[in-house]
Amino acid sequence: MTAGTRGAPPPATAAAAREGGQARPGTAGAAGPGAPGVLDRLTPARRAALRAECARLADLDDAEFGVRLLAATPTHEGRDPALLRRWAEAAAAFGVGLAADRGTHGPAARVVERDGGLEQLLLARYVSRPAPAVELFTDTLALGEELADLLGWRAWFPPGALRAAAVAHEEAHCLLHRDPALRRALRGRTGHTALRLGRFRIAGHVAGADELTAHGYAGARCGLGRSPLLLTAALASAAGALEEARGQD
C-alpha cells in the first residue's frame, strides 16, 4: 500500500511523465482547471456534498481501502478485519517490491483507449486474449482528473498520473498472469493457509490480493502520494452522484 503522505509535495509528476502519462488534448485528463467538465452537471449543493464525502475518504488510512476491497471480494465473508488488513498490506507491499524489480520483467501489453467506462464503472481493464491489451476508459480517466482538481488532490495525483497508474496497474496484472512463480510468491507473501496436515501446509490464494498488488505496483511506479484506491473510491462516489443527477433530469 502506498504510504499515506497526506499534504506532502507531489513526487509523482516525473514518474508520470516517464510512463507517458501526460494527458493528451481531447483525451483522458483533458479537463483542466476552469474547463467545463461532467461534474458541472451537479448542483452546487451536490458538489459540496461530494467534496465532503471525498474529504472523509481522504481521512482514511490507505490500508483501510485495501481492507474494504478484500471485504467486498467473495470468499472473505465474515473474515476478521485485522486479518484482511494484514493481507492487504502484504499484497500491496508485494506490488511495491514488484515495481522496484520492474526491470527484470517482460514488456507491457498494447494500450487501447475506449469510451463508456463510467457506464460500466470501469477505469481500466487488462485482457489477455486475443492479444494482451490494456484498455483505458477515457471518460473515467477524464472524470478522475477533474475530480483531483475539484478536491485539491493534485499533490497526490498530478495531471496525467491517473492514466499512468492505470497502465501500470494493468501491467502488474499482465506480469502476474504471465509468471506463475510471481503468483506463487504472492501467495507465499500473504501467508494464508488453505490446509494444514501436521507439518504439511498448503498456501491458500487470497482472492483480491492480485488487485491490491496491482494498486501497490501502480502507486509505486507512478510515485503517487496516496493509494490509487483513494481516487477509485472518490470516483465511485462521483459516478454515483452523476447517476443521481441523470435520474433527476
Binding site: 474494504r68 470501469l122 487488462y126 485482457v127 498472469h177 492480485d210 477509485t232
Partner: peptide, 25 residues
C-alpha cells in the same frame, strides 16, 4: 483458453454498494 483472463480496475470495488449495501452478498 479462447477468452483468456480479464482483470478490471473497477469503481464498483470501492462503491458504497459493494462495501455492504448489496443484499445478496
Amino acid at each position: 483458453r479462447r477468452r483468456g483472463v480479464e482483470h478490471a480496475w473497477s469503481l464498483a470495488s470501492m462503491s458504497e454498494r459493494s462495501a455492504g449495501g448489496d443484499r445478496r452478498r
